[in-house]
Amino acid sequence: MTDGLLTSPEGTLLILVIAILAHEPFRWLGLYLGHGIDAQSEIFAWVRAVATALVAGLVTRLVLFPVGALAEVPLLIRCTAFAAGIGIYLGTNKHLGAGVFGSATALLAMQFLTQ
């Protein structure tokens, strides 16, 4: 049922509605709270932890259960390239660009080498 939503105008409308109802309000809430509430409070620490865990879960899912072209790359290469990205990031004094592009380059290189 949700198949056609990726391409149809109804899908465009759905994207807009979800953005306005489920996403942008958090920015407005932050705008409102930004005047009085302490960013160091416990509730925010918990919220941050939940958001971090959620995105981390998304990351491992994207790497371990990928869709499309990435699914054609062997699991071992995906995991090695991911670990290489973390290693490069830490090894370059936490340079985000080096880690991100180094990881993708490692993925490419390993694909060509194993072909």
Partner: peptide, 22 residues
């Protein structure tokens, strides 16, 4: 080529993860 598409797809998870680490 497929290999390069895969490289592009790989940018998102590694960028998210390293941003979280940062």
């Amino acid at each position: 080529p497929l290999a390069i598409s895969a490289g592009l797809l790989f940018l998102t998870p590694i960028y998210f993860f390293l941003s979280l680490m940062a």
